[in-house]
């Protein structure tokens, strides 16, 4: 299994001459596309932290009618083809349906913009965040929150003083996992926003237009950048964890 997972990545990186990698990295189009991908992935994760955390809390702490259905709907992006997801998003956030119209009125358009990329990334990767955070909150004894209430803390204070400090690791893990999944998204992003080009779209574009040898350095470079960011975040996360915070 390790061979299956590692060899394609190694082949991509070491099968490209370093000089080609450096020259590709210096191309403005490539650099912009990598930065755009990282930025939109981070934006999607931030969106999930703000809006997905309360949802994860709801799923972890409360039993209600339709909970199973809600859980299934949240997981839906994991199973549907992402090109279909892109079309669904285009229908909702295009200018013909009311959410798209409302955002259009305040100057936010989702077709062919960074907003669109973020929405596509968030849609396909939010289940990773919500599920990790839900599990994290579920693992915290709810009686700790009850005790907090008897000590005079409101539900809001209990969340910020007890629950959040105890599940920040899950939030970080969920956000990093979501970010990693988000930046690799192609299907949904390409339908909502072919331009500006994210890194996966750029690789596809180069492969389609100029062939494998032209697409390969960009693909390798994206892989290296993702790996470095992922390793850095994980290392920082591990160090913070070992300090007992």
């Amino acid at each position: 299994m390790g061979f299956f997972l590692i060899v394609p990545a190694l082949k991509l990186i070491f099968g490209t001459p370093p000089s080609r990698l450096i020259s590709t990295m210096l191309e403005e189009e490539v650099l912009k596309s990598i930065l755009l991908t990282v930025k939109c992935g981070a934006g999607a994760s931030a969106f999930a932290i703000i809006f997905g955390t309360p949802l994860a809390y709801l799923l972890a702490r409360f039993d209600f009618r339709g909970k199973l259905l809600l859980q299934s709907l949240i997981d839906l992006p994991l199973v549907i083809p992402h090109s279909s997801a892109g079309i669904a998003l285009l229908l909702v956030f295009g200018r013909k349906f009311f959410p798209g119209k409302i955002f259009d009125k305040i100057g936010i358009s989702f077709v062919g913009t960074e907003w669109g990329i973020m929405v596509a990334m968030a849609f396909v990767s939010a289940p990773f965040y919500i599920n990790v955070v839900r599990e994290g909150i579920s693992s915290i004894d709810p009686r700790l929150e009850k005790i907090g209430r008897t000590l005079g803390a409101s539900p809001f204070e209990v969340f910020f003083k007890i629950t959040l400090p105890l599940c920040w690791r899950s939030i970080l893990t969920g956000a990093v996992t979501m970010w990693a999944r988000g930046i690799s998204e192609f299907g949904a992003v390409v339908i909502l926003a072919y331009h500006p080009m994210t890194a996966p779209v750029l690789v596809f574009d180069r492969f389609e237009s100029f062939g494998l040898s032209y697409a390969k350095p960009a693909a390798a470079l994206i892989l290296i950048v993702s790996l470095v960011i992922f390793l850095t975040v994980r290392t920082v996360f591990k160090n913070a964890g070992s300090k007992g915070s």
Partner: peptide, 15 residues
Amino acid sequence: PPEKRRIGLLMQDPL
């Protein structure tokens, strides 16, 4: 709500 009652609670576990 519990936070307004001024009732202390100790459960089976120290929590």
